[in-house]
Design a protein around this nucleic acid. Sequence first.
DNA 1: AATAAATTTTAGACTTGTCTAAAAAACATT
DNA 2: AATGTTTTTTAGACAAGTCTAAAATTTATT
Lengths: 218, 218
Amino acid sequence: MFSQAEENYLKAIYHLESDSKEGISTNAIAKSLATKASSVSDMIKKLSDKEVVLYKKYKGVTLTELGEKTATNIVRKHRLWEVFLVEKLNFSWDEVHDVAEQLEHIKSQKLINQLDALLGFPTHDPHGDPIPDKDGFVNAIDKSLLSTLNVDEAGVCVGVNDSSSDFLQFLDKKGITLGKRIKVTEKEDFDDSLSILIDDKKLSISNKIANNLYIKKS
Amino acid sequence: MFSQAEENYLKAIYHLESDSKEGISTNAIAKSLATKASSVSDMIKKLSDKEVVLYKKYKGVTLTELGEKTATNIVRKHRLWEVFLVEKLNFSWDEVHDVAEQLEHIKSQKLINQLDALLGFPTHDPHGDPIPDKDGFVNAIDKSLLSTLNVDEAGVCVGVNDSSSDFLQFLDKKGITLGKRIKVTEKEDFDDSLSILIDDKKLSISNKIANNLYIKKS
DNA sequence: AATAAATTTTAGACTTGTCTAAAAAACATT
DNA sequence: AATGTTTTTTAGACAAGTCTAAAATTTATT
Ligand SMILES: [Mn+2]
Ligand SMILES: [Mn+2]
Ligand SMILES: [Mn+2]
Ligand SMILES: [Mn+2]
């Protein structure tokens, strides 16, 4: 059994591993958990003793198989709860994160499996992220950042790279939601901003936005 | 904001106050939380500093208005989650307690109000205990322990005094569930055991059982 | 290769919540 | 009222998790 703090570290390492390939640095973990590098060093030793991470001093950490399984399960819980909040309790996609951050630590296998069933075994959370199944299998779909599309390419909006309230509310305001079809009509070399077509309306999109929106090309 | 430990103490004191009238003793709290009297003494000081309990050394403790409001809200959350687990996730009444014990500490006002709505604003939890409303109002119904009924008196089973798995499973086995009509047909002076009629079947009930079943006379 | 800069680890301290053992106070009994 | 018993509080210790400051190590730059 892992403490809430330990679970949060495992989850952070899991997410960092998914976009880096190398051993995860103490500093990267500290940044992602808004804590200090010294605290991370301490915790890493405990996690290493518990055999959920591999650790060599100064060399960063990687999850063991057990660590990855544990982290995947926390992510599964987080995302299922997010679906629950949106589908059953009328939360909007920008309100769910902090609550799911708490709910993901509730310990009950039956609870999470029944919740999964209640929700109809969803495959993706409200932000388009895949929900690992009971056995930890993740069905990642093939998606591209909007910023990588060329002029005249198009696709469906399937996810966000940044789940902050600010960004999500901005998308709401612009009418950009998951499932919407987006076509790139112009690309500005100067600042990498885009002109896109959505709902037959023309929108101007900064590079920062385009770097945080996932599109499934079609 | 209160820590999980603080919330558990407040809830324990709240429940102890509901059947005692006097200041709650350190020992009583220790027993109900399965901890040591010295730990309770320590925590009581912290709660007193936070003005949720009134405390005079050696004289026991009582909740302040703020303490009672806080405790009531935790109880509300606990019981709403229990209803959720039974109604939406197919838990049985003897499985919900430990999970609700965790869920009651999740912090989100919106979550609990929306959950209340999803469940149709239930007034009682799966064990027959009343659910405080948003403003902390508790609608206690008038109920009596089965052991206090006289021969030939009857009523409907509306609650349990002991929510342990063992007791609830025993009731299931005997076919005793909330809503069932029970009539006392005999009372044994020797051991205070009862003969009751339920679903037109005759059952023998020990005093210990009769002391943990609530009946609404009718 | 030597030095400077950045990263990581260690040392020591603090908070929360718990425990055991001992002291103090309250309660019971003669 | 004095004595013994029970309850409650205090004192001191410990584990988890965090922090700051300093030391060790690695990485970058001349
Ligand atoms: Mn978390
Ligand atoms: Mn999400
Ligand atoms: Mn609890
Ligand atoms: Mn209950």
